[in-house]
Amino acid sequence: MPAFNQLNTYLYLAVILFCLGLYGVLSRRNLIAVLISVELMLNAASINFMAFNRFLAPHPAVGQIAALFIMAVAAAEAAIALSIIVALYRKLKSINIEQANELRG
């Protein structure tokens, strides 16, 4: 199965995933959904790391470390983002992104 053994396949997959995430971030009004979309984008990046590591990198462990790092960052980010969302909900009684407009200039 040559398609699974090629770099391009994984890159396309990552691009699709990233664009889905980007679309979600830009279009969803629900903050939770935005958060999920961000996670998608992070995963796309992880896939890229793994793919480059598998096909191009001389040292097999580097990309995996980066991927693990991203997971850790994603976990921390999710925790912070969720706490922000909870705080926002307490204040606005809503998690609609368009209602958080207090910083408008």
Binding site: L22, V25, L26, I97, E98, A100, N101, E102, L103, G105
Partner: peptide
């Protein structure tokens, strides 16, 4: 600062779109 703050629309997604 006042003038530039008009760019701050508080529409997160608009800002993000711009960034992207």
């Amino acid at each position: 600062g006042r003038f530039l703050s008009f760019l701050q629309t508080a529409l997160l997604q608009l800002n993000l779109l711009f960034m992207v």
